[in-house]
């Protein structure tokens, strides 16, 4: 029982939780504040993961690798945005979800084995990152949060990035720039009639949110290998889940949403597994648990959307009005 709890609470600080939080902050910029329906956040994460891994494996340093990832992310925003941002928002949704899948299939083709590693993906690219680890070898933390020096280093970096990203988005949103962005979410034509170049602002939002997704992709792969299978539509929808869980038009929401999501997933897994082992739960087997826990999480989310549609941190007042 103690094991289940420590496993679940350990999820609070994992680099994975941080990566999902970062990606969800990017999506909050897109959907929560600008109203852009981006269903391809996985594509931005993929770009970050692959551009970073390929650059470092090619012998580039960490900083150039991150800059190349950002550049690739901006190119992706232009490719997605130029044809669609003049159209209604649903078109962006279709294009982004398709683009994400296209990119996943491209990087996993065996024809590109030498470049992207094909279906096996890439590994060994994070050596430079761990080489600059300032923490001496040893064991850190306590109780549910014990880790080695590598784990500490990646957590410190990941969560620092989350905090910086959250502060950055919060500042942007409270500026006159953020006012235009929120205005676009409410009514594009009204904002246009006030002399604002709506297309340009939507592109800016797509680029900024996309870069946060790219950063999330880098954080996501730091403690593991790059595997094309990780960047499927499931990833995008988990990020959407986290965003709606925390509250779409909030900055804190995506962070807490990500924590709750991973703790719940670990908790349901642990409890079901213990139940089956001890014979309390007899109608399912150990290898069905993986699927069942997602069903339970899905059910929980349905209840949340029905009873608290603004998310945990959303402003209830915003729901009194329907447009």
């Amino acid at each position: 029982m103690d094991q289940i709890l420590t496993n679940a609470l350990g999820e609070l600080l994992t680099p994975m939780t941080a990566a999902y939080a970062l990606a969800a902050i990017g999506l909050a910029m897109h959907f929560g504040f600008t109203g852009l329906l981006n269903f391809g956040q996985a594509a931005y994460m993929l770009v970050g993961a692959y551009a970073f891994a390929m650059s470092t494996l090619a012998g580039l340093g960490l900083i150039p690798a991150i800059l190349i990832s950002f550049a690739a992310s901006i190119v992706l925003s232009f490719i997605l945005g130029i044809p669609t941002l003049r159209l209604r928002s649903d078109y962006l949704a279709i294009v982004t979800i398709a683009a994400a899948e296209i990119m996943r299939f491209i990087v996993s083709t065996t024809g590109l084995n030498d470049v992207t590693g094909g279906p096996q993906g890439l590994s060994g690219f994070a050596r430079d990152f761990y080489a600059i680890n300032p923490f001496p070898a040893g064991e850190y933390g306590f109780w549910a949060w014990t880790m080695d020096e590598k784990g500490l280093w990646v957590r410190v970096v990941a969560w620092s990035l989350v905090i910086i990203a959250a502060l950055f988005v919060a500042k942007m949103i409270r500026s006159p720039w953020g006012r235009v962005i929120k205005g676009i979410r409410e009514d594009e034509d009204a904002v246009r009639s006030l002399g604002k170049n709506v297309y340009s602002y939507k592109m800016q939002s797509l680029i900024i949110g996309g870069m946060l997704g790219t950063l999330a992709g880098i954080v996501f792969v730091l403690p593991r290998a790059v595997q094309p299978g990780n960047f499927g539509t499931g990833l995008t929808f988990f990020i959407w889940t986290i965003l709606l869980l925390g509250g779409a038009a909030t900055v804190l929401g995506p962070i807490i949403g990500s924590m709750i999501f991973w703790v719940l997933l670990s908790l349901t897994d642990g409890l079901l597994s213990a139940g089956v082992d001890s014979g309390v739960i007899t109608f399912i087997t150990q290898n069905q648990i993986g699927g069942i826990r997602f069903m339970l999480v899905g059910l929980g989310l349905m209840l949340l959307v029905i009873f608290r549609p603004q998310g945990i941190f959303g402003n209830k007042k915003e729901l009194y009005f329907n447009g």
């Binding site: 205005g183 409410e186 009514d187 034509d189 009204a190 904002v191 009639s193 915003e318 009005f321």
Partner: peptide
């Protein structure tokens, strides 16, 4: 201005 008023509701 517009025939169907375009107030930005959640601002």
């Amino acid at each position: 201005t517009f025939q169907l008023t375009k107030a930005l509701s959640l601002l």
